[in-house]
């Protein structure tokens, strides 16, 4: 019987199945198992979490394939991995390894300062970061099947993710409320493909799943992002840089599901130990802010 792989519906649908869930950064099999047992819907296999990438400096690349493979063998949930912006070969390597989702990520040092990947070319789906609707729509235009806020990775500071989620949600509402003859000018102003804005207006919703990422460090942070309209949450350094990763991971999963049950979130926030230390955004030089990467 005829079957088609890598269709838009299959790639976007994969992200639909992650909704309401938490995707956790892990650097080895042991952490991946902790994440799976805590109820993560997927793991992101990395060589270093963003906080350590930030501390180490230098050029940050795709993880060693043996780490990705180790994580893939350790868990039954989907495994994601990061490729550098515009790095066609890193993305093809991860696809060839059977990774379930690729993050074309500003957390790594960009390989191309002009062009992102043509993500329509791949069978594997992609997630990309965005700070506003124009950036999100450009990535969808290139074939991204899922969007996440950029936030400011590795800081444990939620303020940038909040800024980006509020911006994207407000701009989506504006586009839906516009009359069709205003859309082309809006597309020009946002730097967004017209067809994507037209689709948003016609469907009355964003065409792909939109997660929060970049700075989530507590159960309350995760619930906050859900309340602001996120479909789910990525937690990078926040879990395995905390004092008690297992407890933290479970609490963040539960707070994401029951994000409006404040009594419950109070209970799960008790005695979690010290979260990751965190960085005030204004103390990071503008040229060291990861969210500025991508075009």
């Amino acid at each position: 019987m005829m079957l088609k792989t890598g269709t838009e519906r299959v790639k976007r649908g994969m992200a639909e199945m992650q909704k309401g869930g938490v995707i956790m950064d892990v650097i080895n099999a042991e952490q991946a198992k902790v994440a799976e047992a805590a109820g993560a819907v997927a793991v992101m296999a990395l060589e270093r979490v963003p906080a350590d990438i930030r501390a180490a400096g230098g050029v940050s690349r795709m993880a060693d394939p043996s780490i990705v493979e180790e994580v893939m063998n350790a868990v039954s949930i989907p495994v994601m991995a990061k490729a550098r912006i515009g790095h066609i070969v890193e993305a093809r390597i991860l696809e060839a390894m059977g990774v379930d989702y690729i993050d074309e990520s500003e957390v790594l040092t960009p390989a191309d300062e002009v062009f992102h990947l043509n993500k329509r070319d791949y069978t594997v789906p992609f997630v990309c970061g965005a700070r506003d609707l124009g950036e999100a729509a450009r990535r969808i235009g290139e074939g991204a099947s899922m969007i996440r806020t950029k936030g400011e990775p590795g800081t444990g500071n939620i303020v940038e993710a909040v800024r980006h989620m509020r911006m994207i949600q407000a701009q989506i509402r504006q586009v839906i409320a516009m009359s069709e003859d205003e859309l082309m000018t809006e597309a020009k102003n946002l730097g967004a493909p017209y067809e994507i804005l037209l689709q948003i207006k016609k469907d009355g919703k964003f065409p792909v799943v939109n997660f929060a990422a970049g700075g989530v460090a507590s159960p309350a942070d995760a619930a906050l992002m859900m309340q602001l309209g996120a479909d789910g949450v990525f937690v990078g350094s926040g879990i395995f840089k905390s004092e008690n990763p297992e407890k933290f991971a479970r609490a963040i999963v539960e707070a994401t599901t029951h994000y409006q049950d404040y009594k419950l979130i109070a209970e799960l926030s008790k005695g979690l130990g010290t979260p990751m230390k965190g960085i005030e955004i204004s103390s990071i030089l503008p040229n060291e802010r990861m969210q500025e990467r991508g075009w």
Partner: peptide, 27 residues
Amino acid sequence: FGRQVDSFEADLMITHVGEDFAGVFIR
């Protein structure tokens, strides 16, 4: 059926439901 790269669409015949049903299979 395999990992995400093997996810697929195929037309199905479903008893009591009908023919030409678009089956979306994801992992």
